[in-house]
């Protein structure tokens, strides 16, 4: 997977972190709205970093 592709995915994550809660989820007043979305984004970021750094030191 190229660095460029990883950078695009990362920028995509950053953008949806800002955009989705203020658009699609702005009227979802429940735990499965922005609360769940941001929690999932955090988990995805953990997975992303795990993947990107998998070969460090090998």
């Amino acid at each position: 997977m190229t660095k460029k592709f990883l950078a695009i995915i990362f920028i995509f994550f950053v953008l949806i972190t800002y955009i989705i809660p203020y658009t699609l989820l702005s009227h979802v007043h429940a735990w499965y709205g922005s609360f769940l979305f941001w929690a999932i984004i955090a988990l995805v970021i953990i997975g992303f970093n795990y993947f990107v750094t998998r070969n460090w030191g090998k």
Binding site: V14, T17, P21, A42, I45
Partner: peptide
């Protein structure tokens, strides 16, 4: 919940 978003942006 915006406070969670604030901290998650830092996290990212």
């Amino acid at each position: 919940v915006g406070a969670l978003g604030f901290e998650i942006v830092y996290f990212i």
